[in-house]
Simulated scan of single mutants.
Amino acid sequence: MTIRPARANIDPVSAEAPVPDTERVIRDEDWYGQDLSGRTYTRYTFLDTDWTEAVSEGAVFDECTFSGVRFNASRHTGAAFTNCTFRRCTFFDTRFTECKFVGSLFQQSAFTLFEVTGGDWSFVGLPGADLRKATFDGVRMREADLTAARLEQASVTGTDLSGAMLHGSRLAGADLRGSDLSSLDPLTVELAGATISLQQAAVIATSLGLNVE
């Protein structure tokens, strides 16, 4: 049996950001508008760094820690942020296209006008995250932790949520059409006003023990 570590935005978090490698720390740097395409960083820690309007294509960040980093208006395509930790970061008008975030964890971060298109976000930790009006389109989010996440008015379309942890999540008014809802327990989430297809309705009805003919 796999035991998941406790990882909730709403839990107390140490004031100190984890530093995988003390010799690989980038602190208080201004990367405004920089092109990070093709760069590779492994076990780096980015502290209070400004990535506003930065762009990256094919960049790789593995086992990195981002604390207090501003990703505002940045654009990332085909980049990999695997097994990373994002703490107290801001994502305003941030877009990720066909990016890989497998195993990454977000804590106490702010998401406004947040948009993800395609890519693999499996095993990502977004517990308690405020993702209201965010967009996830065609994203692979298998076994993602969305416990108690706020997704009101969000667009989560064509997304693979198989095995996802959705207990306590708020999906009121969300567009969920085309997404895999097989892991959704309608008794433990808020679904009022959400938009789903007839096929998805049948899946939910079946989870409630109803016979669909």
Rank of each mutant, 00 (worst) to 15 (best):
R132V: 15
A8I: 09
T52Y: 01
A54F: 02
L47E: 00
F92A: 08
T42Y: 11
F91Y: 09
F101N: 00
A164Y: 01
F92L: 12
T77E: 14
A144L: 02
F96N: 05
K100T: 14
S207P: 00
L184G: 02
W121K: 05
F101W: 07
R7A: 15
F114S: 00
C89E: 06
A164G: 01
V156T: 01
R39M: 11
D21S: 15
D160A: 09
V203R: 06
A73N: 03
F123N: 05
L47N: 05
F111V: 14
L198W: 08
D160N: 13
W31T: 00
R39W: 04
A149F: 04
T40I: 06
E143R: 10
D50I: 11
R24K: 14
S155D: 12
Q107F: 14
T2P: 15
T65G: 03
W121T: 01
T90F: 08
D130Y: 09
A54C: 12
R170D: 15
D28Y: 10
M141E: 03
A194G: 09
G173R: 02
G103N: 02
T206H: 07
T77H: 12
L184Y: 07
G178S: 04
Y32P: 02
D35I: 07
R24N: 06
L131G: 03
V116W: 01
N211A: 15
E143T: 11
D130S: 12
I26D: 07
N72T: 11
F123Y: 11
I204K: 01
A8P: 04
F81I: 01
L161V: 02
A148R: 14
T42D: 15
V60T: 08
H167S: 08
E16H: 04
N211E: 15
N83I: 02
D160L: 06
A202T: 10
F114D: 00
R7N: 14
H76V: 05
E98F: 13
R24E: 05
E29H: 12
A6F: 12
I26P: 02
N72R: 08
L198Q: 13
T85N: 06
A8Q: 11
E23R: 15
Q153P: 03
L181V: 04
D11W: 08
G125T: 11
F66S: 03
R7F: 13
R142D: 08
V19D: 07
E53F: 09
R70N: 12
I10Q: 13
W121P: 00
A154K: 00
P186Q: 03
N211C: 14
V156Q: 00
D175P: 03
L47F: 09
G103V: 00
L113S: 14
S207C: 00
A172Q: 09
S183T: 07
H76I: 07
A73G: 01
A144S: 09
V102A: 10
V55W: 02
F66K: 06
L47H: 05
V60P: 00
T147G: 03
L151Y: 02
D28V: 07
H167F: 02
D30P: 06
L171N: 08
A201Y: 10
V19F: 06
T195A: 15
A149I: 06
T135Q: 10
F81Q: 00
